[in-house]
Amino acid sequence: MSLLMAILIGFLYAVSIYLLLRRSIVKLVLGILFLSYATNLMLFFAGGLTETSPAFADPNAGAEIIQTSDPLPQALILTALVIGFGVAAFSMVLIYRFYKETGTVDLDELSEPEKS
């Protein structure tokens, strides 16, 4: 199981890096999206995979350690997801503005800012 997950994580990272290294700014944004996919999955995986025991406390159990999935990574990912949406939305609007201002979606045309 963990092997499959590791492969998926590695795969997602590879795809994200490949996309980030493209010249098209649209692919750059997709790369950012994939980077957050990969990182979220990594965090989730690092918390340990537990089937069918969501992180809920038993009100009757008192102060005992209950065997549940790890809540901390989940909390981290939950905020990361929403923030990720904010970042994705912002970067999408940014490339939209970028295109409107420069008339290109090629990043290499940005490489000499002094001349523009």
Binding site: P54, F56, L78, T79, L81, V82
Partner: peptide, 12 residues
């Protein structure tokens, strides 16, 4: 607070 849900989900 006690079951799946919360501010983020509800806000969305």
């Amino acid at each position: 607070h006690n079951e799946p849900g919360g501010g983020f989900i509800a806000g969305l």
